[in-house]
Amino acid sequence: MKKGKLYGVGVGPGDKELITLKALRVLRESDVIMVPVMRSGEKTAFGIVEEYIDGKEIVECRMPMTKDLKVLNENYEAICNKVSGYLDQGKNAAFITLGDPTVYSSYMQVNELMMKRGYETEIIPGITSFCAAAARLNMSLCERDETLTILPSSYKNVREGLHTQGTKVLMKANRAIIEVRDILREEGMIDQAVMVECCGMENEKIYKDLNELDDRTSYFSIIIVKD
C-alpha cells in the first residue's frame, strides 16, 4: 500500500478570510486534520478552519508550552507516532498551524522527524502574524533598503537585537511582555513601538502606546518597533 502524505498547513494569523486558497484545497482533500491543542485546551488554529472542514476526521495533538527540550522531543515523537499510523494506512494528513509553518512553528519539528522516518511531507505557506499586524496598523514593515529583524522576545539577547538597524518585530513575548515593555523604556524605544494582540481574532486589541501595558497579554501579541 502506498503511504499517505503529510502536509504542514499554515492557516494564517487568525482572520478566517486570510487563509489561502491552496490551504483550503489541501484541507478539503486530506483525509485527516491534525489539530494542535495547548495545555489549556485552546485550539486556536482549529477555530480558523473549523467551518471549512466539516465531516473530516479530527485528531488532536497536545503541544506543551515549555522550553524543556526533553519534554518537547518526547512529545514530538508521540505526535509522529500518531501521524505515522494514518500515513501507513494510505491516508493523507494535514497538520494545521497558525501563521506560516516556517516561522516559529512547532510543526517544523514534526516535519523534520517525519522526513527522517521516510515519509513524504509538504509545507503549505500561510500569512504571517507580523505581516497581518502591519497591515492592521496600516504601516509598512520595510521599504527601499531598510532591514527587517524578527526577534523571539521571551528569549535572551532581545535587548541586543533591538539595536539592529531597521524595523524590529518582537514575537512570542507572552509572560515576558512586561519585561519587554521595560526594556523598550530603558532603551528609549517605547515611543517607536506599537503592538497588536490577537490580530484578526474576536479579541483583537491594538496598543499605540505600550505604556498602557500593565499586565500579561496573549501569546499572540506582535510588537513592531520602527527606527
Score class of each variant (00 low, 15 high):
M1W: 08
K2N: 10
G10L: 01
V11H: 00
G14D: 00
D15C: 06
K16V: 08
T20W: 02
L21K: 10
K22F: 01
K22S: 06
A23Y: 01
V32Y: 05
I33D: 01
V37T: 13
M38L: 13
R39L: 11
S40N: 12
S40Q: 08
E42M: 13
T44N: 02
I48L: 03
D54V: 15
D54N: 11
K56Y: 07
E57M: 09
V59W: 02
E60K: 02
E60Y: 05
P64E: 10
P64W: 06
D68Y: 06
V71A: 10
N73T: 08
E74H: 07
Y76W: 15
A78Q: 13
Y86K: 00
G90Q: 07
A93Q: 00
A93Y: 00
A94L: 05
T97E: 09
D100G: 03
V103W: 00
S106R: 10
V110I: 15
P125M: 09
I127C: 03
I127K: 00
A133S: 15
A134W: 10
L137V: 03
C142Y: 13
E146Q: 13
K156W: 12
N157I: 06
V158M: 15
E160N: 09
L162M: 14
L162T: 04
K168Q: 14
K168M: 09
K168F: 07
L170E: 06
K172G: 08
N174W: 15
R175G: 12
R175H: 15
I177F: 05
E179M: 10
E179V: 10
V180W: 02
I183A: 13
Q192R: 15
M195D: 03
E197N: 01
E197S: 13
C198Q: 12
M201N: 07
E204D: 10
E204F: 09
K205M: 08
I206T: 08
L213D: 06
I223C: 11
V225T: 01
